[in-house]
C-alpha cells in the first residue's frame, strides 16, 4: 500500500526516522510477508526465514535515520535478508562437510539467484495484493476457486450463493482486474495470475 501513496512518503519517512513505532508498523505490514516469502525461497525453512526477517527489521531500525526513500529501505531489507540467508545456507553446508570456515563474500552465482527470487517475491506480492484489494464479494470467490482450488459447485456451497452467482462474480473479478491493465502505472500493477486463469477456466 505504501508504495502506491507517494504523497505520504515524506511524512512516513519523517515518522520513521524519529522512531515512531506506528510508522514502523506500516512498513512492517508492507514488507514482512514478501521478505519471509523471499527468505523461504532461498533456504526453505519457514521458522528460520521468519527469524532472519525480524533481525533485518531490527538492524534497519538501528539505522533508520539514514534513509531518504522507501525504495532504499526496501532494498536494504532485501539485502540484509539475502546476506543472512547466505550465511545460514553456508553454515549448513559447512556443517554437513564438517568445515568451520565461513565465507565473507557472496558468490556471483548466489547473488544472481537471489536477484531472480526477489523479482518473484515482488511479483507474487502484487498478485496477492490485487486479490486482497478486491471487494470481499469477489475476493472470496477468487480465493476459493484459484487458491483453494475448489470447484464452482464447492465454492457455491462454501459461500452459500448459487453456482451461477459464483460464475458471474468470477467473471466480474477478472474484468475488474483486466481494467487495471488499461490504467496500469508504476504503482498500480495488474493481476496477470487471474487473467491467465480466466483464459483457461
Amino acid at each position: 500500500m505504501v508504495a502506491k501513496h507517494f504523497h505520504i512518503e515524506p511524512e512516513l519517512l519523517q515518522q520513521l526516522s524519529t522512531g515512531d513505532e506506528r510508522a514502523l508498523r506500516i512498513l512492517y505490514n508492507e514488507y514482512y510477508t514478501s521478505l519471509v516469502f523471499f527468505a523461504n525461497s532461498m533456504i526453505h525453512d519457514t521458522a528460520q526465514a521468519e527469524d532472519i526477517v525480524i533481525t533485518a527489521f531490527t538492524r534497519y531500525w538501528d539505522k533508520r535515520t539514514q534513509f531518504e526513500a522507501l525504495a532504499a529501505i526496501k532494498a536494504y531489507l532485501y539485502t540484509l535478508v539475502r546476506n543472512d540467508c547466505y550465511k545460514y545456507y553456508h553454515r549448513e553446508e559447512a556443517r554437513k562437510k564438517h568445515l568451520l570456515a565461513v565465507m565473507d563474500t557472496l558468490p556471483e552465482e548466489y547473488v544472481a539467484y537471489a536477484d531472480s527470487r526477489m523479482v518473484i517475491a515482488e511479483m507474487v506480492q502484487q498478485i496477492h495484493r490485487e486479490i486482497e484489494q478486491l471487494n470481499p464479494k469477489y475476493r472470496d470467490v477468487i480465493y476459493l476457486l484459484f487458491v483453494e482450488e475448489l470447484s464452482i459447485k464447492e465454492t457455491a456451497y462454501q459461500l452459500q450463493i448459487s453456482e451461477n452467482n459464483v460464475r458471474k462474480r468470477k467473471e466480474r473479478a477478472i474484468e475488474l482486474l483486466r481494467s487495471r491493465i488499461v490504467r496500469a502505472n508504476l504503482g498500480n500493477l495488474v493481476l496477470f495470475y487471474l487473467v491467465i486463469h480466466g483464459k483457461t477456466h
Binding site: 510477508t33 516469502f37 523461504n40 521468519e50 487458491v147
Partner: peptide
C-alpha cells in the same frame, strides 16, 4: 503461482506474532 499465494497466506498468519517479537 497457486502455491506461492498459498504460502503467502500461511506466512501472513504469523505476522502479528512476529510483530510483537520485533
Amino acid at each position: 503461482l497457486r502455491n506461492a499465494i498459498q504460502q503467502r497466506e500461511d506466512t501472513a498468519l504469523a505476522r502479528e506474532e512476529n510483530w510483537q517479537k520485533l
